[in-house]
């Protein structure tokens, strides 16, 4: 059976800085993954619904506005509410180091800050997809 990792790259909130999201999206594609891009200004509800319809293995959230709280944990909460426990949730952006443990405690699987090598993200996804 052919296995293809599907990643939903989403920008929650109002912030329009999509450079990072797009660079990561391209890197994942170049690593052979299928990347579904949602565009800007997504609510957590939209992101979760899209992830379900697209049967994504991974949700990658990008926020540079500081709105990772409460938006990232909200995505995790909605997934749980819908009974989804097999989607890997990762995030990136301008995220203060002391927020990372809090995001993880809230159920975000991993957080990648500025300067993360693209390959590290690719490898992390390959090793950690839940199905």
């Amino acid at each position: 059976m052919e296995r293809k990792i599907r990643v939903l790259v989403a920008k929650p909130g109002l912030d329009g800085h999509d450079r990072g999201a797009k660079v990561v999206a391209r890197a994942l594609r170049d690593a052979g993954m299928e990347v579904i891009y949602t565009g800007l200004h997504q609510t957590p509800e939209m992101i979760v619904e899209t992830a379900i319809q697209e049967d994504a293995h991974v949700i990658g959230l990008s926020a540079l506005s500081g709105a990772h709280f409460p938006l990232f944990p909200e995505v995790v909460r909605l997934l749980k509410e819908r009974g989804v426990d097999d989607i890997l949730v990762i995030g990136g952006g301008i995220i203060p180091p002391e927020d990372i443990p809090k995001l993880k405690a809230a159920g975000v699987d991993e957080v990648f800050g500025p300067g993360t090598p693209l390959n590290e993200i690719v490898e992390y996804i390959r090793r950690n997809v839940k199905r």
Partner: peptide
């Protein structure tokens, strides 16, 4: 799908945002 990497960027949904909810 890219014939070289096997990956793909699927962006059609962006245009269908009004249907998202």
């Amino acid at each position: 799908t890219s014939p070289f990497t096997g990956g793909a960027l699927l962006g059609d949904r962006v245009r269908m945002n009004p249907l998202a909810s």
